[in-house]
Design a binder for these strands. Structure first.
Lengths: 338, 338
DNA sequence: AAATTTTACGCAATCGATGGCGGAACTTTA
DNA sequence: TAAAGTTCCGCCATCGATTGCGTAAAATTT
C-alpha cells in the first residue's frame, strides 16, 4: 500500500493536518512541537512517503506542470528548445508535458484539450499559422501562453520571436556584397510568418541593391529536407543556374546541400549557400556552412520567464513580445565573386 | 469560472452523478433518459466543459501519464524515440512527461521522485549504469518500468535492447573482410553496458580473425563528440596510424569524422570508419557513412506495448527482454584494402 | 385497486492533501 | 485559586469526479 498522510498520522497518533503541516515545513507557524515534527519527518522518510500530486493539485488548483507543444521534436531546433526549457523549469519545480504535432492542426487541438483538461499552469506553443482557433481555447480559459517561433496575424499574445527580417537581410546582403546577383530563395510554408518575414528580408536586400528577382528564383514549399533537395536540384539542372541559395530553415538547407552534392557540385566553389538556423551538421560538411543562428537558449529562458511571471505574479499584465536578434555565423559556404 | 460537473448539474437540475454518467457514456446502463442525456451533452459542449484530470486521477488511481526519462533529448537517437513513443501513447490516450538527465544521477533521482509523486502509470527509462538505486525506488512502488538502451547488471526488469555484440561483429567483420587489421575502437563510458557489449563484439571479431589489439587502439571515454574528435586526432597524429575506426555511437562517430577532416584526411580513401547509430548527417557527408542502425521505431513501439500490457492487463507477468536485431547499412565510408 | 416492474435518477462516501478556526491542556501571573 | 496566556494540535469543509446502493415516480400487470 502506498502511504498517505493518514498512514503517517495513524502511526504517530496525530491528525492528517499535523502531518501535512510538518511535511510542508509549516509546523513552526502552527506551533507544533519539535518532537512531533521529528517523529513525523523520520517516519515519512522511512515509509518513502511521496505526496500525491493529484490530490495536491486538486486542492490547490495548481499543477506545477507546463505543456510544451512543438511541431517536430526531432528537429534539433525544437529538441534544444525542449532541453533548455526543461532544465529551467525543473529548477523551479515544474514538470513538462511534451506534445508533438507534426504540423497537424487536429493533433494540436487534441493536445491542447488534454493540457487544459490537466489544468496545466501554462503552455509554450510553437503554433502553425492556422492555429488561431486552438489558441483561443487557451486564451478563453485564461491559461498563460507563450507563442514560440511563429507570429499569428492579428493575434495579441505573448510571443518569443527573433528578428527574422533583419537576420535574413544581413545574410542576403552579405551574399550581395560578395558579388552575387542570382540568389534563390528556398522557403517554407508560404503562409508561415517566419517564412514571410524571411522572404521579406530577402526581397528587401535585393531591392536595396536594385537586383530584380525572377519568379522561378522563389521556391516556397515547406520546411522539409525534401523540399530543399528538390528545389536545389531542379534549379541546378535548369538553364538559369543561380550562384547562391538562401534556405529558410535548417531542414531545407540540409536538403539543398545534399542536392548540390548529388549534382556533383561543390560548396562554395560552384555554388554558395546561406540559411537559417545553426545546427551541428552545418559544421561537419567539407565546407562548414554560413548560417543565421537563433539564440535558442535565450529564447527558451525568455519563454520560461514570461510564463512564470504570469503564473506566479499576475496574469493581467500587458502582452509582451520578446524579439531577439539573430547572429550571423560566417563559415565557409559562400564564394566571393568580386 | 471553470465549469465543473456541479455547474452543469445545477443548470440541468440533475445531480453530479447523472452528469458524470452521461459524459462518460454510461447513461444507458444507468437508465438515464435520452432527453436528459442530450441536455447535458449539449450544455457541456456549450460551456466547453473539460473534465478535471486531477480529480479523476485522484479518484481512479490512474493518471494516463507515462514518464519518459532520457539521457540527452538533443541526441537524435532519443528525440526520435520520444517522437515515436509520444505518438503511440497519444493514440492510446496517454500523455508523456519528459525528463532529461544529461547523464546526471542526481537529476535522474529527482525526476523519478517527481514522477512517482505524480503517480505516473509507467516509466520508460534510459538509465545510466549507476542508476540501480534509483530504479529500485520505482520497483518498490510496483510502477511498470521499461528500461531502454541499457542493461543493468544483475537487475531483473523489462528491457528494450538491441543485439549490440552481434551488430558490432557484423560491422567489424566487414572491415576485416576488406583487409583491415589496424582497427581502433573509440568507445563510450567504460561501465556502460552498450559500450561493453560493443567492445566485446569488436574483440570477438578481431579474435576470430586472429588479429591482436594493441592497448592504444582502444579508447574508452564517453559518448561525446569531443571524445570522438580527440581520440581520432590523437591516433591520426601518432606514429601508429590505424586504417579504420569503429565508433561506439553517433556522437563519437561525428566527432571522429570531424577529427579526420581536420587532419586533412579523406573518408574512405585515407581512413575507414564505421559505427553505431544511423543519423541524418551520416548521409550528408561527402562519403556517406556506413553505420549500424538500431530499429528505433520498433524499439519505441515495443517499449510502449510492454508498458501498456503491464498497466492495462497484469503487472505480475514475468520480466521480458525485447532484443532486436540491428541493421548494417553499407554506404561508403570504408575502403577495400584487398 | 393493489402489487409488481421499470424508469430515471439522487445520496453520500471516497480518493489524498490543505488550512481556517477552534479548543483542550498546561503554565504563568496576580 | 481564578484568570490569562501559551503550547500544541484536531475538526471539518473543500477541491472535482466516480460509483454502489437505494428509492420515488411512472408504467404495467393481475
Amino acid at each position: 500500500m502506498i502511504p498517505t498522510l493518514q498512514t503517517i498520522a495513524d502511526r504517530v497518533n496525530v491528525s492528517r493536518s499535523t502531518v501535512s503541516r510538518v511535511l510542508n515545513n509549516k509546523w513552526k507557524m502552527y506551533g507544533i512541537s519539535q518532537a512531533t515534527a521529528d517523529k513525523i519527518t523520520s517516519l515519512a522518510k522511512e515509509l518513502h512517503y511521496l505526496k500525491n500530486e493529484a490530490a495536491r493539485s486538486l486542492r490547490e488548483k495548481k499543477t506545477f506542470t507546463i505543456g510544451v507543444i512543438v511541431r517536430d521534436i526531432t528537429n534539433p531546433f525544437y529538441s534544444q528548445l525542449v532541453k533548455f526549457v526543461e532544465s529551467a523549469l525543473y529548477s523551479k519545480g515544474y514538470t513538462i508535458i511534451i506534445c508533438n504535432t507534426g504540423y497537424d492542426l487536429d493533433r494540436e487541438n487534441g493536445h491542447i484539450n488534454v493540457l487544459l483538461s490537466r489544468r496545466v499552469d501554462g503552455i509554450i506553443l510553437s503554433p502553425i499559422q492556422k492555429s488561431i482557433e486552438n489558441i483561443f481555447k487557451i486564451k478563453d480559459r485564461n491559461v498563460p501562453l507563450a507563442l514560440f517561433d511563429c507570429k499569428i496575424d492579428d493575434l495579441e499574445a505573448d510571443y518569443i520571436l527573433v528578428d527574422n527580417e533583419a537576420g535574413t537581410m544581413e545574410a542576403v546582403s552579405y551574399l550581395i556584397d560578395q558579388g552575387h546577383k542570382k540568389i534563390v530563395y528556398i522557403g517554407g510554408n508560404p503562409y508561415d510568418s517566419n517564412n514571410r518575414l524571411r522572404y521579406a528580408g530577402y526581397r528587401n536586400s535585393l531591392s536595396l541593391a536594385s537586383i530584380s528577382i525572377p519568379d522561378h528564383y522563389v521556391k516556397h514549399g515547406n520546411y522539409s529536407f525534401k523540399h530543399g533537395y528538390e528545389a536545389a536540384t531542379q534549379l541546378l539542372r535548369s538553364n538559369d543556374v543561380p550562384t547562391a541559395f538562401f534556405a529558410a530553415n535548417n531542414r531545407i538547407m540540409l536538403g539543398a546541400c545534399k542536392g548540390i552534392m548529388d549534382c556533383g557540385l561543390q560548396i562554395p566553389d560552384d555554388i554558395s549557400i546561406v540559411g537559417f538556423d545553426d545546427f551541428e551538421t552545418a559544421t561537419m560538411l567539407p565546407s562548414p556552412l554560413t548560417v543565421i543562428r537563433q539564440p535558442l537558449r535565450e529564447m527558451a529562458l525568455n519563454a520560461v520567464d514570461l510564463l512564470l511571471s504570469r503564473i506566479e505574479k499576475a496574469n493581467n499584465i500587458p502582452y509582451m513580445t520578446s524579439m531577439l536578434k539573430t547572429e550571423f555565423v560566417i563559415r565557409n559556404s559562400t564564394k566571393n565573386l568580386n
